[in-house]
Simulated assay, not measured.
Amino acid sequence: MNAFLLVGGGGVLGALARYAVDRRLAGRRGTVVVNVLGSVVLGSLTATPLGTSAMLVVGAGFCGAFTTFSSFAVDVAEFVENGEWRLAAGYAGGTLAAALVGVVVGSWLGRVA
């Protein structure tokens, strides 16, 4: 199957899942949740012997549309603009740390499964 269709199909599902999380968890919590969950999924994919098609659908498509660096960056910038430097640093550092832990956990899950 065409790689563009695989990535696009996964992207549609990822975008819909992202919207569903945002509807459920309004605000910055949704951004953190999707970024950490996406990191777990992508971490597990890297440790699981999947074919190229599955990596395109789930990795590039779904995770690419589900996670969001741009929303994270806007959130941090808003904290800075409001003079909330500690909150900005905590949010940025905490999200990054949680996402990295998510990759490690996902990688472990991918090897165990």
Rank of each mutant, 00 (worst) to 15 (best):
L45T: 06
A89V: 15
A15L: 00
A47H: 04
L50G: 02
V21S: 01
A65I: 03
R18F: 05
G14S: 09
A73E: 07
F79K: 14
L42E: 06
V57I: 11
A15E: 06
Y91L: 11
A20K: 10
F79L: 15
R18H: 12
G14R: 00
G106P: 03
G30H: 01
A26Y: 13
A60D: 03
N2S: 14
T46H: 14
V41C: 01
R28T: 01
F66Q: 02
S53T: 13
D22Q: 12
M55N: 14
G8Q: 09
V103N: 05
S53Q: 10
L37D: 03
D75Q: 04
L6D: 12
R23V: 02
A3Y: 08
Y91N: 13
S44V: 00
R29N: 14
N2R: 11
G93P: 10
G8L: 14
G61W: 01
P49H: 04
L96V: 15
V36T: 05
V105E: 06
M1G: 14
A97M: 02
A77D: 12
V101D: 05
R24C: 02
G102D: 05
N2E: 10
R86T: 13
G43I: 14
G9E: 02
T67L: 08
T31E: 09
G110V: 12
S39I: 01
L109C: 11
G14F: 03
G110A: 09
L16S: 06
G106C: 09
L6I: 13
N2L: 13
N35M: 11
T48L: 06
T52S: 10
A54S: 11
V21M: 09
S53C: 11
L45P: 07
G51Y: 09
N35C: 03
V41P: 06
L25K: 06
G11M: 09
V112M: 13
N35G: 01
A26S: 14
G10Y: 03
A99H: 10
A77Y: 13
V74Y: 10
V101N: 04
G93L: 10
L25P: 07
A98I: 10
F69N: 00
T46L: 15
A113D: 01
A60T: 09
A60W: 02
G59D: 07
L5S: 09
V105R: 01
A47F: 07
L96D: 03
A99V: 08
L109I: 04
A98R: 08
T68I: 05
D75L: 05
T52L: 05
A88M: 08
V76S: 03
A54T: 10
R23Q: 13
L13W: 05
A47L: 09
M55L: 15
V40F: 07
G27C: 11
V33Q: 06
L45E: 01
R111I: 11
C63I: 04
L16Q: 01
V76N: 13
V74C: 08
A98S: 00
A88L: 05
V80K: 08
G102T: 02
L109Q: 14
E84W: 06
A89Q: 07
R24N: 00
V41Y: 06
V32Q: 12
F66D: 03
F79I: 01
N2F: 13
F62R: 10
N82L: 15
V12R: 02
E84P: 03
